[in-house]
Structures are given as C-alpha cells and as structure tokens.
Design a protein around this nucleic acid. Sequence first.
DNA 1: GCCAACGTTGGC
DNA 2: GCCAACGTTGGC
Length: 152
Amino acid sequence: MAARCWLMKTEPDTFSIEDLARKKIEGWNGVRNYSARNFMKDMSVGDKVLFYHSSTEPPGVAGLAEVVKTAYPDPTQFDPKSDYHDPKAAPGKPIWFQVDVRFFKKLPRFLPLDELRGVPAIADMPLFHRSRLSVQPVTPEQYAAIVALAGK
DNA sequence: GCCAACGTTGGC
DNA sequence: GCCAACGTTGGC
C-alpha cells in the first residue's frame, strides 16, 4: 500500500525537530486522546509525517519524519511516576499506544501556521478546523503542497 | 445515553 | 496569561 501522510504535533520546548535530528528515532509517547491514538494505530512503516511545532511562537511545520515502527503500547501509561500514567491501564490491557518515528529532514524553511492558513491547496487540513487534534491525517496532495511551499 | 461540568489544547 | 474550542467524565 502506498505510504500515507500524517501531521504530528509537539511542543518544541518538550521535543523539537532538532531533538529528533539528534536522536534520529523517537517513540511518540504521551498521546492521551482517543482520536489521535486511533490514527496512530492506522499508521504503517514508511508513512510520512509532517512534524509540527505547537504552543510556540510561531507555530508551524518544522520538518519531516517517517514511521519506522507501528503502534505498540505506550509504556508511560503503566508508570505511576509518569505524567502520562493512566490508572485504568494495565500491562496486558493497554489503553494508549505509540509509534516510533525517524528523522527525515528539517524543512529548508519553517512554515508558520499563519502562512499555511492562506494556502488554498491545503485549506481542508484538520489543522485549521480541529486545532486540538495532535495526530491527524494529511492527504498526499496536502503533504506535497507543504513540502513544495518550503522550497527545495 | 444525555448533557453539564470540568479539564486541556493551543493560538493569540 | 487568557480564553475559545472541544474532548472527557460522571451524575442522573
């Protein structure tokens, strides 16, 4: 099956594209939203990811990544000391899942949300009308439009 | 199963 | 730091 495309948000103060460039591969843990979780469960190895910086000034797409491991239980849900601990989850009965993503590249130019909002080709992206969804599907056309916008 | 209250996200 | 939007929880 052809690779699908996604947008994944992170707060750069917590984990930025530079962090991913340094670590190469990161487990995308801490997602505690059912809709976002379900999208992660749909991901396949090789799927493309727009790496989005949120809650920062300015917010926007910072780079590209790809899925290298499909959904598996997020270990932080079992850890009472973790901010992401979920007392309703138990090993063998996981509720939350994560994927692993690998750094692909930083975009040659950061694309601020404000600029993306004005681009007709991507006007249907959930980013604009479901702002709280931290993992969201992107069409190949939208993905290509964003990469093209950033330049070579 | 509805919906009010509450909590969180994320842009500004 | 504020607050609108919206997802989740829990009482009924």
